[in-house]
Computed example of a mutant assay.
Amino acid sequence: MDAVVITKSGGPDVLQVRKRMIPTIGDYEVLVEVRAAGVNRPDVFQRKGNYPAPTGVVADIPGLEVAGIIVKVGSACCGIRIGDRVMALIAGGGYAQYVAVDFRLCIVLPDNLSFIEAAGMPETLFTVWHNVFERGRLIKGERFLIHGGAGGIGSTAIQLANLLGADVFTTVGSSEKISFVQELGASHIVNYKECDFEDVWSGIGIDVILDSIGGSYFEKNVNLLSEEGRLIIINAMQGAKVELNLIKMMHKRIHLTGSTLRNRSLEFKRQLTEAICQNVLPLIETGTYKTPIAEVFSYKDAGYAHELMESRAFNGKIILAF
């Protein structure tokens, strides 16, 4: 099969198409012929050598989400069959024509969902659902802030929070992105290059904040939180070392948490798959929730896809087509 391989740590040019053996599958796995794969920021970190694959996962083929057709089924699999159209969250190896997936992590696609749209869903849906609604316990009527609302995680978080009745706040980096996030359901928007979001929203009281920036955003987030507010950290692009005023945390009774997804157990991901099928799949089936697609590249042009990802000059998800 063809696979996009990280030939060495470095820039987008280190991604090269190479021939690899088609994966073998275990009893609880299916072989998926990949039709499309999502491009995510962790793929960029892995390419640069800053985010190694977990033990037992192919180390030099990035890719955390795929959509395709099942072409082989393990002996212990049930409720799924050859020919099924599926999307799946995986721990790596998605930039390839075939991938082995635990069958309990596969979600059968509704008829109205294309492979391109589906490939951009698993990583962001799993991340947002777990962090915002399970860890953050966001409920109807609460104020929710997501930084970087025009990206993959942001566009997912805005839609789900809005559909479930929250009042959505977000930050974006250009005036062109304001209308995009408004259409997704954001009601309060700040261009962080033009003004300080803390100054704009000071005193309002945000109930839940999902942050991937870290650095100087941390103190601002704490200041914006309401009493019993929840701050969830999923990345630290601006810096991982921050200062926390413990007195302020105690006075507001702030809940501070964070998580990563890739290295979580298979059992955890199986349970999260069930939660997505129960709570989000109905929204997908009716077309209420959709994946905004920024651009689709051939897998042979994965380097260009990574260049676009690093530029941040896009709205929604970047997809590789096979």
Rank of each mutant, 00 (worst) to 15 (best):
N112F: 14
T288W: 09
P122S: 09
G287P: 11
A76G: 00
V57R: 04
T288I: 12
S179I: 09
E33P: 00
E194P: 01
E307D: 11
R104F: 02
G229F: 04
N223A: 13
E307I: 09
G10A: 02
M249D: 03
D111C: 09
I61F: 11
D301A: 07
F126E: 10
P23E: 11
R18V: 05
K317S: 08
G11Q: 13
G94A: 12
D167T: 08
G165A: 12
G258R: 15
H130W: 13
E310M: 03
A294F: 05
I234M: 08
L225D: 03
G49N: 03
K177E: 00
D60M: 05
F314N: 04
M250W: 15
D60A: 04
V32D: 03
E123M: 09
S187W: 01
M21G: 08
I206P: 00
H251Q: 14
L138Q: 11
E194L: 09
L256H: 00
I6P: 09
P292G: 02
P292R: 01
R20D: 07
R264Y: 02
P23Y: 10
E228F: 15
G83W: 14
V73T: 13
L184K: 02
R81H: 12
Y28V: 03
K177V: 05
D27K: 07
L15G: 11
L231S: 06
D84N: 15
C106M: 06
A59D: 15
K317W: 01
K8E: 11
P292H: 03
A157C: 06
S226Q: 01
A294L: 07
F180L: 06
I158R: 06
T291D: 04
A302S: 13
E65K: 08
Q159N: 02
L15F: 13
E227I: 15
H188P: 00
Q46I: 11
Y95K: 15
S187C: 13
A161Y: 12
I139E: 14
Y95P: 07
N223E: 15
I69S: 09
H306W: 09
T171W: 02
R143K: 15
K72E: 10
T127L: 07
I6C: 05
R264C: 01
G215K: 03
P12G: 02
G149V: 06
P122R: 12
L164P: 02
L225M: 03
L138M: 14
G38H: 06
